[in-house]
């Protein structure tokens, strides 16, 4: 029972945990920024690209959304060396994988956001003489982004949780750091509990933030 637990391992583990956590953050932030940019382009391609481009974007998004992230991680981890001829570290492989994978999810959010802007706004942009890109950049995307901010952040919380899946290819994230320290000091149980606590605190505070944002963002119309 609980009396068997020895949490004195935790202070010792902190430097390792911190390093793992930093990688988890790096992966989250890279995939979020890259994913939102790529996802927005995919959404635009799907909504206003030609038939070829919009079909490509749709296929890209639908495919990635219907297979497990774990499989995608494995695909890239095994395929990149086959293509480039030399192995790529698990950490870098994950950065590429997550950016490309998350783009599919952010793309669906941005698509909904763009579609939530009334057609009249686009017309008003065109009517003052703006081009397609000016209308998107000045009128539609700022509003879409703002309306979707809570949803984009919620997706980022999911993304942060999903970074733990790099476990499958041995990249050293928060979970892996906790597991390694647990093994080295023979206290695996305590370290799993500790890592769960860290994930919970981060995700829970972020989701509280999202709730407050949602109340504030009800856009002035």
């Amino acid at each position: 029972m609980l009396s068997n637990f020895d949490f004195s391992v935790i202070p010792v583990s902190l430097p390792f945990i911190w390093e793992g956590l930093l990688y988890s953050f790096k992966l989250t932030i890279t995939a979020m920024c890259g994913g939102i940019i790529l996802g927005t382009l995919l959404a635009l391609a799907r909504l206003s690209g030609g038939p070829v481009l919009s079909r490509f974007a749709a296929a890209y998004v639908d495919t990635l959304r219907s297979i497990p992230l774990l499989m995608v991680i494995l695909w890239f981890f095994f395929l990149i060396p086959l293509v480039t001829g030399k192995p790529m570290g698990a950490e870098n492989s994950a950065l590429i994988t997550f950016t490309l994978f998350e783009a599919a999810f952010y793309s669906e959010i941005m698509r909904a956001g763009i579609q939530s802007i009334p057609k009249g706004q686009v017309n008003a942009g065109y009517a003052v003489g703006m081009t397609y890109w000016q209308t998107m950049g000045n009128v539609v995307l700022p509003q879409a982004f703002r309306n979707m901010l809570p949803v984009l952040l919620t997706q980022t919380i999911i993304l942060f949780q999903d970074t733990s899946l790099v476990y499958a290819i041995g990249a050293k994230d928060l979970l892996k750091a906790a597991e390694n320290t647990g093994k080295n000091y023979n206290r695996p149980v305590e370290m799993y509990v500790f890592s769960a606590l860290i994930y919970f605190i981060i995700c829970f505070s972020l989701s509280m933030l999202v709730k407050r944002l949602q109340k504030r963002i009800a856009i002035i119309r």
Binding site: M1, I157, L165, L175, P188, Y192, A196
Partner: peptide
């Protein structure tokens, strides 16, 4: 909702029996 599924799995597998 706020703990990754993989970590929850480890909690059930390694921690719960204790």
């Amino acid at each position: 909702r706020n703990v990754p599924i993989l970590v929850q799995l480890f909690l059930w597998f390694f921690v719960f029996p204790e």
